[in-house]
Computed example of a mutant assay.
Amino acid sequence: MSSVATITNNATKAGNDKIYNPNSELDKNAFMKLFLKQLEMQDPTNPMDTDKMLEQTAYLSTMEMNTNMQKTIDTLSKTLTSSNQLSTVSAIGKMADTGNRYINITDDDTKKDFELYFGDNIQSGKVQIKDKAGNIVKEFELNPHSKGILSFEWDLKDSNGMRVKSNSYEISAVYTTPDGKQKTTALGAYPIESIRFENGKAYAKLASQYVPFEKIKEIYQWQN
């Protein structure tokens, strides 16, 4: 019979002094109470075997070590979580790319709103909407505008005024800066404006919405 079972049995014989352990788990406090009760109730003419006492004392030490180790692991986990949160905050001001270039059109949609980020001032250009085959189904002319996020509304009609089929469509833009440079941008690439934490999960504000950090494929510094 194991030492733990021996202590439990002796404690049961103690009578009215019961130790309440609803989960039937022997933690260090319960073990110590049982151990002391066994010493108290032992027969003076037949004391506990020294080897068994040493074995039970060693068991108690092991439980204490395990408890301390668990506390250390919990502290380390909290530290790593805090460190990860700080690393996400450091991404504010950088560019985030979700890799999602498409908007989905269903039969119930009557229009679709979307946003594009322009890292340079716009002199002229075009927003292009393409089908999955790469064909341009609609274009929006770009007038001179300062850099930043621009919002667009698509009535879901193609260049011929016909309602497009329900499908996924790629959104991108080509534009010229005031100094004549050719630039491109696409749906899904925006600067990180802020970071929000909910239930330990990080969300990045990209344009007008918050996106879970794990949805971001790439973070980089904007290059003019």
Rank of each mutant, 00 (worst) to 15 (best):
M1H: 14
V4S: 11
S166P: 01
K112H: 10
A58T: 11
G125S: 05
Y102Q: 12
T185E: 00
T106S: 15
K130P: 00
I129D: 00
Y59A: 08
K52W: 11
S2K: 13
M32D: 04
N224W: 08
N100A: 14
L39Q: 11
P178R: 10
A91Y: 05
E25T: 12
T8F: 13
G188R: 00
N46Q: 12
D49T: 02
A173M: 01
K78H: 09
S159G: 05
Q182M: 11
T6K: 15
S172D: 03
T79W: 07
S90K: 10
E25H: 11
N199A: 13
M32W: 06
D158M: 04
I136V: 15
D108N: 14
E153K: 10
L116S: 00
F197D: 06
E141S: 14
D27I: 07
Q182T: 10
M48E: 10
A58W: 02
F114I: 04
I149P: 04
E55A: 14
N100L: 13
T12I: 07
T62Y: 09
G125T: 00
I136L: 06
T57W: 03
L26M: 15
N135P: 02
S24A: 14
F152W: 09
G200K: 07
G119W: 01
I92S: 09
K33C: 02
T98R: 00
T98W: 01
Q38S: 15
S61P: 01
T81N: 13
D74T: 01
G15H: 12
G161R: 02
Q85R: 12
T98P: 01
I92Y: 09
S61K: 14
L34V: 01
N199Q: 11
I149G: 08
Y117H: 06
D158A: 08
T75D: 10
Y190L: 04
D155W: 04
K205Q: 14
Q85N: 12
K13F: 11
Q182I: 10
S146H: 06
L26C: 10
E25G: 08
D51T: 03
G15N: 13
E115D: 12
E193A: 15
Q85C: 05
L26V: 11
S166W: 05
S168V: 12
E170L: 15
N10V: 04
Y169L: 02
S3V: 08
